[in-house]
Amino acid sequence: MLIELKDLNKTYDNGQPLHVLKGINLSIDRGEFVSIMGASGSGKSTLLNILGMLDNYDCGEYRLAGRLIKDLSEKTAADYRNRMIGFIFQSYNLIGFKTAVENVELPLFYRGTGRKERHRKAMEYLERLGLKDWAAHYPNEMSGGQRQRVAIARALITKPEIILADEPTGALDSKTSVEIMSLLKELNASENMTVIVVTHESGVANETNKIIHIKDGVIGEIEDNSAHASSPFGADGVMK
């Protein structure tokens, strides 16, 4: 198992304690294409942040590729994130004053890769995502779909263990959403990349092979969706 969660608990304490995750048990295998679905406040984003080592959990166990991820120092967490995780965010989270290619290079910069090697690889990934001609453009000169593809290139460049996508289509129109989802699907199929998508849209979840429902901080139904027929909108690929 690539990801193993055992009785994971998380409580936020902002004046009043808020028990967000109430004993999550979950395992995800290498090469799976999974979505975590739930309403807002269900704890799905918190779960994703913990999976991405952006946040800590209180008790339980989280193992990633056999390694126990618990109480990491900021430095170790940064190194693990750099090596094992590729993030895709709803709001792209590109750095505005850097060009597309510079944004894609950045994870390799923090890994200490040389300039030329970095640039070569970044161009390679941009080309794969069809953005070669946009390499020297700044994010604000691109469309939402293009920005998200830059973000995907940035996530992929370190060859991570998992891709964590937090509402990757949340800011995109339906046509672009379909494009991005089929891109993730293709990544999963062709490179056996483990992809975890957090969403509240059933259409998006329907594109994935397995849907994990989360409600009020506990895992509900885990639905096998290899047929992509769970959503009434899924059949014809319309997601919104």
């Binding site: 991405g52 952006l54 900021e74 430095k75 940064a78 190194d79 994130r81 750099n82 090596r83 993030f87 989270n93 590109l94 750095i95 505005g96 950045l106 994870p107 923090y110 890994r111 940035r154 370190t158």
Partner: peptide, 15 residues
């Protein structure tokens, strides 16, 4: 926010 992005893609606090 930019520092958050940098950290999420693997920037150590020292960097």
């Amino acid at each position: 926010r930019e520092f958050g992005i940098r950290k999420s893609i693997g920037a150590r606090p020292g960097a």
